Simulated assay, not measured.
Amino acid sequence: MTPRDASDANDNPWSDLDRPPLNAEALRRGVLREGGFYRDLRVVPRTGSTNSDLVALAETGNADEGAVLVAEEQTAGRGRLDRQWTAPPRSGLFFSVLLRPADVPVSRWGWLPLLTGVAVATGLSRAAGVDTALKWPNDLLVTVGDEERKAGGILAERAGDDGVVVGVGINVTLRADELPVPQAGSLALAGAVSTDRDPLLRAMLRSLEEWYGRWRAAGGDPAASGLQETYAAGCATLGRVVRAELPGDRAITGEAVAIDGDGRLVIATKEGVQEPVGAGDIVHLRPA
């Protein structure tokens, strides 16, 4: 992969002293270890999408499971429903990891974005000292003032027949005047005790390794691995009245009551029906 060249001031990694560049060598020393899960870690100054790049590498046989690709800036980052994700250079953490869960039935691979959410939230709580919550299926929420704000997102994409790339984007030091939308937030705005991106990234990757190993050891069983219970405990969507905007211009409104064994959100409607939702856009209508 070759990130495109640019000549603006943002190409100088020290142009903003509050946003120093990641230390790639130190990250590799801290993450890559003999017998560990991670096999390779690359940091690039700029690219369109770490997910797209890593999927391409995986599909051409140029990346092994445990490969990590990190970008200081993404120019074409994507979330669910192809929504754009942009942020100033070095203001966040944008990375992707290649997983090949060959020993887990494909029917359970739908848990991978939820597993990544648990890992990210756990890692950030430890390293940044900020309370985080998960909005089903793939958003990371923080509290800014008394408002719930989205500070990050997760996108999982298939990479060939045997791989999944999970991508993570986290707003770390975005200031209020830099937010793409008023509903966005960042770790800094949420009062994080640390916004040093190197230890934050290491914490998230270690947490992902731990949860992925536990899930694989259980054959992908979300209950036996503790994933289903942990996700539900940290999910801000449960217990709230929500509107699920589904494919085909269909919508369901009701209380989010559970995460089922397939990772779907179960919504109890006023008609007394409990309907599982596997894909869709969820709008929180009322606090729990």
Rank of each mutant, 00 (worst) to 15 (best):
D162Q: 12
V144L: 05
G145A: 01
G145I: 02
L155T: 05
R206Y: 06
S194R: 09
R158D: 00
R197Y: 06
V181K: 01
V142Y: 07
I170F: 14
G191I: 10
A188G: 13
E147Y: 04
L134R: 01
G153S: 03
K135M: 04
M204Y: 03
P137W: 03
G163E: 06
P199D: 05
I154G: 08
R175W: 00
L174Y: 08
R158S: 05
N171G: 08
A184F: 14
E210G: 05
R149C: 15
L140E: 02
N138Y: 03
N171A: 10
R175P: 00
I170R: 10
L208T: 01
G163D: 04
W136S: 03
N171F: 07
D177W: 03
W211Q: 08
I154F: 08
S186M: 11
G153N: 02
E147R: 14
E147G: 13
G213P: 01
N138C: 08
V142R: 03
A133W: 12
E178Q: 15
W211I: 06
L134T: 04
A156F: 13
D146W: 08
T143R: 14
A176S: 13
G163Y: 13
L208Y: 10
R202Y: 04
L205S: 07
A192W: 11
W136H: 03
L187D: 07
Y212I: 05
R206F: 13
A192K: 08
L179W: 04
S207C: 04
M204V: 15
R197C: 07
E157D: 11
Y212P: 00
T195R: 01
A151T: 15
V181Q: 08
A190H: 06
L205W: 10
R197P: 10
A176P: 00
A159L: 10
D196G: 02
K135Q: 10
V168F: 12
D162A: 15
A184H: 12
N138L: 02
A184T: 12
D146G: 14
P199A: 11
A159W: 12
L140H: 07
L201T: 13
V164L: 08
A176R: 15
A151S: 15
D161M: 06
R149Q: 09
G169D: 09
V165Q: 09
K150W: 13
G145V: 06
